[in-house]
Amino acid sequence: MNEKIGMVVIVLGLAFDFFGCVGLIRFPDVYNRLQASAKCVTLGTCGILLGLFLFKGFSGAGIKALLCMVFILLTAPVSAHALARAAYRSGVKPWGGTVVDHYGEDLENIK
């Protein structure tokens, strides 16, 4: 029973991984790509690790998979945030269809 649930969770995770990578190809500029891929790939990999935990139960590998999930959930948004900031600071212009750009206006005033 656990293995069937684990299989479903792994397939969901694989699908979200794929959507994130398609977003990486399709979206028009760095910031949108970052949005799509950071969200989808993080949740997808967490899904795969949760599936591993459901397969193995509370053995060594299962506990380590849970720890790995916590690490990824803590570190992936931080690196996405750092990359978005670095892209703005290194002078990448937002896409032409951008509606408002308050951060670009305020960029001189912040440090």
């Binding site: 891929s37 790939v41 997808g44 990999t45 690790l49 998979a65 790995c68 990824i72 690196s79 990359l83």
Partner: peptide
């Protein structure tokens, strides 16, 4: 920055590889 984003995502995907 585009390339850096792709490399970041590749790093997270490889964790999935290891789990599988």
């Amino acid at each position: 920055p585009d390339r850096s984003v792709a490399i970041d995502m590749l790093g997270i995907l490889i964790v999935g590889f290891c789990a599988i």
